[in-house]
Each structure stands twice: as C-alpha cells, then as structure tokens.
Design a protein around this nucleic acid. Structure first.
Lengths: 347, 347
DNA sequence: TTGAAAGCGCTAACAA
DNA sequence: TTGTTAGCGCTTTCAA
C-alpha cells in the first residue's frame, strides 16, 4: 500500500502540470518538456512524467496554452439565417476539415437579428477565434459582418457579402442549370420549359440564365411562355403544369425545375394527367434533395450543388487564410448532374 | 494633431488591458475595476478608461478570464450521428438558451465513429467545457460517452445512454401516439390501422404501445392485421395501403402512421384509389415535418414532438446542472397533435 | 539533463 | 481612490 501522494490539491480546472510535476518529483519545466516531447530529457524521466500524467488524468488546459500561442485553435461559424437543409452539409464538411486540424468550432445562430449577430460576434472575438465562417440560407447579398479586428480571416459560404474584398463561396447555379438543360437536349428533347421560384432570388436569375444559354447552345428557341416563375413549392409545380398543359396544344417535352419540390409537384401533376415521364415529358430538378428525388415517381434527375465540397473548400480556404494567405472575391464551385429515371429510362 | 500614443505595442491577441491602462494613464488594477464596474473609482477615471478601451478596440480575452473563474462559459454539443432534421430544432433551441447566458457552444460531429468521438471529447475537455450535450438521430441506447472528469454535467438529448445515472431527454412517443389515435376515435373512426417503421426502433415500439392503449381507451378492438411495420418511406406507405385495401372488404377507416413520410405515401395511395381522405379514411402522421404535412393532399394531421421545447428544456437543465444541481434519469416531454385536413374537414 | 523564472492577459486581494 | 502584486496553467528562455 503506497502512501497517498502528498497534498494532492488539484487546480480548479482539474489536475495541472504542476500537479504532474510535483507527483513525478520533477520541475514544471521538465514536466512540460516531457509532455510535449520537447528538449532533451532522459527517457526515464520522460516516462515517469507521462505515466503520472496518465494516472492522474492530466489534460493540458487549452485556454492557458492559447494565451501563449498566437492561435486559439478555434473558429466561429455564424449562421445569419438559422440552419437548414442547405447549411447542414456545408457545416458537416467544415467540421470535418477543422476537426482534422484540431480546430474547434463555435457555432452561433443569429436568425436575421442584427442585435443577436452583434452579440455573437462580440462573444466570438472575446474567445479570440482564429477565423470566421458566415453562412446563410439564401444567397442574397448581406452587409459584411463587423466591425472585425483587422486581419481576422472571414469567409462567406452560401452567402454573399456586399464588399468586394470579402471572400464568398457559392455554388455555380448558372453552370448547374446549363448541365441539366444540356442533358435534356441530349436525351432528345427540343421544347424545354423552365418552372422556377421567386425571381427576387439571385439563384433563380442565375439558373434561368443557365437555362437560356444552354438552349442557345442546343440551337433551341426560348419560348417565353415556357418560363414560369412562382413559389418554391410542390403546389406551384402542379399549378404550373396545369398552366402549361391543360387545353394547350403547344406543349413542352421537357421541364427543368428550379428545385426538387417544384419538380416533384410537376411529376405528380403529369402522372395525374396520364402524361408519361420521361417518355412524353422529361423532368429535371435542382438541389438533389434525397427525400424528394427518391420519393418522386419516377425518381428525379437533379442538379447537385455539392454542398459538401463547398464546405470542404471553405474549410480549406479559411485554414489557408489563417496561415497568412490572402484570398478574396467570389468563387463559384461547379454543380453536378445526377441522372435518374425522370429523364432517362435507361437507368 | 495629437501625438501618437507612446509605444503602442499591443499583445499578440490584440490590445490588452495593459494597453488600455497605459494609454489612459492609470494602473492595470484601476483599468480592470473601471471596465468591470467594480470597486470604488472616480467617475472621471472610469470614463477615461472606458473611452480609451473603446477607442483602441479593447475586448477582454475570455481565455485569460476563464483561467481565473471556475467556468469557461462554454459547453460542448456532441452529435453522435450527424445532424439532421430532428437534431436541428433541438440545437436551435439549445443555442438560444445558452446564448442568452453568454455561454458559447462548441459543436462536434462524430458520425458513429467512436475514434472521432474520443478525439472530439478530448478536445472539448481540453477546452474545459462546463457541460456537455450528447445528441443522436435515433433514440437507440448508446454507451455513455467517456471517460469524463467526475462532476462534468452531461445531458443526452434525443438519445439514450446505457447508464442509469445519466440524464436523458426524449419525446413522449407513446403519449404522442395516444393523442393521434384518440383524435381519430373522436372524429368517429372505429377501425384504426397503424402503419409504421422498422420495429427495432424504440420509437416504433413506443408509438405502437400508445396506439394500442388508445384503442383500449376508446373501447376498440386491435385487429392484428391492421398493424403493419415496414420502412420509414413513402413507398412503404403506398405498399401498406395496397396490402390493407386492395381486394379487401375488411378495410380500416383511419390510419395512424409512424411518420409523415409514410403518411404521405398513404394519402397518395388512397387518392389514387379514389378513396376520400378524410371522409372514408382519415390519416394522421408523426413528426409534423412541414415539408410533408404541407405538400400532402390533403395536408396532414401530425404529432409534433416539440423538439424546440426539448432543446429549451435541455439547455435549462444543463445550466441547472452547471449551477450544481443533480439531475438524472429519463425524462419524456409531451408531444402535441396538430390537426389538419387529413383527419378533419372542418378546418 | 534538469530547474528557475518570466510572461501570456486577466482578476482580486492587499497596500498605499 | 488608486497602485501593486500574486496567481490562473502553461511554455520557453536561461541558468545550473
């Protein structure tokens, strides 16, 4: 039975390196070297210290460490418009990137409340974050966050700051739309309609532009009556089909939809009219939202914004900036087309 | 033109209280008192200090502060099964609770990877979090996280730890199911079926129990052939309707579904058979997932698990525990029924 | 090879 | 009313 270690008073934050040193019978400096595999130490001493550390459950206090380093090894993620379907995969990928480098994430949410945003920012700055990620659900331009200390790396993901020096990462909506429409052309469709969401969304405008440019590429005419802007809902998809088909002779043979909800409404409405998808009319969506693409009959071809990749890239860039690089401007990452039965029976 | 302040070397983490003191021409102690509205100080001095602090953009370093306090004013949220539809509202509410008290959240994600979980935990403990929230997508029992320093408050939300001393917060699935079935009885239905998900989910078992007990309450018989367990998908909902209705004379007049996806499949299948909802068959879902309840035709009556409330309560409890209270055991929070047209034409 | 001590930025106790 | 100082837990010279 060994005597209990003398005076084992541990610090308020758990055992400290001082405790380790005392119990191991070495100086604090020695303990530090041993624990950080630094300096020259006898192997024996090293072992003794690490053993003691393990035994008493010592874990270095990051806050104390950060006081020395110029890094806190934390970043903030500030969502200005809650968390949703879109920000989630982005966050997931971000998290992975940072976790791999031992960087912890402070997560904040300021749902369209500038006051709350200010509070969160204050808190984050108090924590001495090394970088900041700003996310939003919509790609609308927003005023830059701030004021921020000069030199703090900031990246806007799935969101745009009204500041030309800001770094913004966005999906290439236009390119994505082009992919989908091109594909519709390639499966032989010539009369391609576009049913989409509210025009005040930048994404709607960009996707429309992609739609038009792809039509041009394909040498197809853009019928103005084949472009319908409405809501982001299934109901709108159904209504639009009614407008496009009921009592019309001039019908489209393909529909590119602004999102998957609309696309689902569209295939439902077509099925109810006995119009074969994709035989008579092919349908493509946008977002590649599994719940929708899978449940639709037939499963939906859809444009994937590769939000994971977006998140990864955001993490990578922020880490670069923290390392001292200067990055700025708007970057758009490519989308991918995922082909399913709604455009191609050969699946 | 005033002379530049002498030797304005600021610390590596930005201006320090020492800078403030020097520029304001007072001692550090005085500056501290002024900035924290502590002790007795001349109003003049107080003002001078705060002015300087504002001017040079001084912001106290939380990490340095935490070294003194016994609290770090941070908590960790560890999601053991990614983030999804269910954990999101919970997190949102948690965030609100903590933000109000100036507590920052470290967000981690260890998707079913024990190794990663261990890493994250290590990191969080290094950051000296004051408390820990563990979330999961499924309510399956999981081994308790750990090892953790004694006395660290932990709460499992939407997840259960295999440890009787753990505090777990869950929705009352059984009660929720009872609400729905009772309601179906109240609108005059007598032959109530239950189409639900895989039986290995505890939620499936609990909801079934609620279904059965409500039937008993209503004095209705439980037809074994009216209980169908399958997948959590729309397709299963449709298939189950086929099984229940096609070529059968012994049909139900109401269906309580294990989730909204199934319910949506059910109403779609019924509509395709020309069976009126809710006239001939009423349908209720579970989850109250807006995307589904709204898009279904007719809109779905559904059980809401009140995940926001769950998150709020989790935050409240964890804060209590941080304050020294001891809370343990499994707590189930009530669900709410949201009535829509799939069960009641009177909406 | 090890120990002592200064200092990261801050607070709080004690002196002046 | 203000200044001085001893830590919080850690790393990093510099001495021994």
């Amino acid at each position: 039975m060994s005597a209990p270690p003398p005076n084992e008073r541990t610090g308020r934050h758990g055992p400290t390196i001082r405790d380790v040193a005392r119990i191991a019978g070495v100086s604090i400096g020695t303990a530090s070297k041993a624990l950080n595999s630094n300096g020259r130490l006898r192997q024996e001493t090293r072992d003794k210290v690490t053993t003691v550390a393990r035994e008493i459950g010592y874990r270095p206090n990051d806050m104390a460490q950060s006081l020395h380093r110029t890094r806190s090894m934390t970043v903030g993620v500030l969502s200005t418009d809650s968390f949703g379907r879109f920000t989630l995969p982005i966050f997931q990928a971000l998290e992975e990137q940072f976790a791999d480098r031992g960087i912890a994430i402070f997560m904040c949410n300021a749902t369209d409340d500038p006051e709350r945003e200010r509070q969160h920012l204050d808190q984050l700055l108090g924590k001495r974050i090394d970088g900041l990620v700003v996310t939003a659900r919509r790609a609308d331009k927003r005023p830059p966050v701030g004021p921020l200390p000069a030199g703090l790396p900031v990246i806007y993901v799935f969101s745009q700051a009204d500041d030309r020096d800001a770094l913004c990462l966005l999906p290439d909506d236009e390119g994505g739309a082009r992919l989908a429409v091109r594909h519709l052309g390639e499966v032989g469709k010539r009369r391609i309609a576009h049913i989409t969401g509210p025009e005040h969304f930048e994404a709607v405008q960009l996707r429309r532009r992609g739609y038009l440019s792809a039509l041009a590429e394909l040498g197809l005419a853009a019928h103005p009556e084949f472009y319908l802007s409405g809501k982001w809902t299934e109901a709108w998809g159904r209504d639009a089909v009614a407008a496009l088909f009921d009592g019309k002779t001039d019908r489209p043979d393909a529909i590119f939809c602004g999102n998957d909800l609309i696309a689902r409404g569209v295939v439902d409405a077509l099925r109810e009219r006995g119009i074969a998808v994709p035989g008579e009319v092919a349908v493509a969506g946008f977002d590649n939202w599994d719940v929708m693409t899978a449940a639709a009959r037939p499963p939906l071809t859809s444009v994937d914004m590769n939000l994971s990749a977006l998140g990864h890239e955001a993490g990578r860039l922020l880490i670069e900036m923290i390392g001292g690089e200067t990055v700025r401007g708007i970057r758009r990452l490519p989308c991918t087309l995922v082909v399913r039965e709604s455009t191609s029976t050969s699946t």
